[in-house]
């Protein structure tokens, strides 16, 4: 099969079996990322974004479904992935504070992936990596707790880049940082993406940030994707009631931004849990446009216009 996607996820499910029941963290999702694209994955807290990320990098094995990396199904390999594959797909974790080993200095932290992937000339490579993320060379002797949050995040990014990956998963890489440092890191990531034609799966709650960097935006709610569209289209024509609620709640600074937000949709209703997913459309308990059918039948994903997908009974599939 010809395909320009670097990553295709099909019918992916990831359930956790706990004493209190089955947590359907990821419940049948499809995602595809083209070569050189930035896919923004946004969604409720606890909707399964990190679980998707962990399943893609192989930290979790999927309950079912396929993960296809450049025409190769890698879903069932789970933790036994080949070194080559691990080299290609890397992740920057959500928590900058705890993801770096405090007992290792920066040199040692960056050396680990180089050793694992059998990369020679490590001194030189470490210098290059630090240069790429604009961290002074003399930092190699410092320990994570001695440097600032922004710098720590730069080191996490450098570590992920060490094996020359082609797909990078970024799980809220800048949410703990101030906006000026965020701007610098994002600019660097965009530059790297251009230079090395990288693809990113970018997870964030910051929709304003997404607006400025994503090629495509997908919204997740309770383990499912509820809307997906090209970035510009997504912000100009949000369709799903959850998306509208999200966009209307973005805290912004200026009137110009206030004007382009959808009218305030008050967040109502209990937030359901992934152990006990509501019948029909899982959003119906919070939806202001709920109809009779919504609590009975789960809507299917429909393509409303080219490349714009919505899973909601209000919208019908177009004839293509």
């Amino acid at each position: 099969m010809e395909n320009s996607n670097i990553l295709t996820i099909k019918n992916l499910k990831k359930y956790f079996f706990t004493q209190k029941g089955i947590v359907k963290a990821v419940n049948d999702i499809d995602i595809s990322i083209k070569e050189g694209e930035i896919l923004g994955l946004v969604g409720e807290s606890g909707s399964g974004k990190t679980t998707v990320a962990y399943t893609v990098v192989g930290l979790y094995s999927p309950t079912s479904g396929e993960i296809i990396f450049r025409n190769q199904n890698i879903g069932n390999e789970g933790k036994n992935r080949s070194i080559k594959l691990k080299q290609e797909i890397q992740i920057v974790f959500q928590d900058p504070g705890t993801s770096l080993n405090p007992a290792r200095n920066i040199y040692q932290i960056l050396e680990v992936p180089l050793k694992v992937h059998g990369i020679k000339n490590r001194d030189k490579k470490i210098k290059e990596l630090l240069q790429t993320v604009e961290i002074p060379e003399d930092y190699i002797h410092k320990y994570p707790q001695m440097i600032g949050g922004g710098e720590r995040q730069m080191i996490s990014i450098a570590r992920a880049l060490a094996s020359n990956p082609s797909l990078l998963i970024l799980d809220e890489p800048t949410s703990a940082l101030d906006v000026s440092i965020q701007a610098k890191i994002i600019n660097m990531l965009l530059q790297l993406q251009k230079n090395f034609n990288l693809s990113y799966l970018f997870i964030t709650h910051d929709l304003s940030l997404m607006r400025n960097i994503a090629s495509t935006v997908s919204i997740m709610y309770l383990g499912k994707i509820c809307e997906s569209a090209k970035c510009k289209e997504f912000f100009e024509k949000p369709l799903h009631p959850y998306t509208q609620m999200l966009l209307s709640s973005i805290p912004v600074l200026t009137d110009a931004e206030e004007d382009i937000k959808p009218k305030k949709v008050k967040s109502i209703g209990e937030i359901p849990s992934p152990v006990n997913i509501p019948s029909g459309c899982s959003f119906h308990s919070r939806c202001s446009k709920k109809m009779d059918i919504c609590s009975k039948e789960d809507p299917i994903m429909a393509e409303i216009s080219a490349g714009h997908f919505v899973r909601c009974h209000l919208f019908k599939q177009i004839e293509l």
Binding site: E151, V179, I181, R211, V252, K261
Partner: peptide
């Protein structure tokens, strides 16, 4: 001023350069 100018906007004007220099 520099901090406030670094906030990404919903209007989508791209990402600013941030405040020059280091902590």
């Amino acid at each position: 001023k520099g901090l406030i100018a670094s906030v990404p906007t919903l209007v989508g004007r791209g990402i600013s350069n941030g405040i020059p220099g280091h902590i």
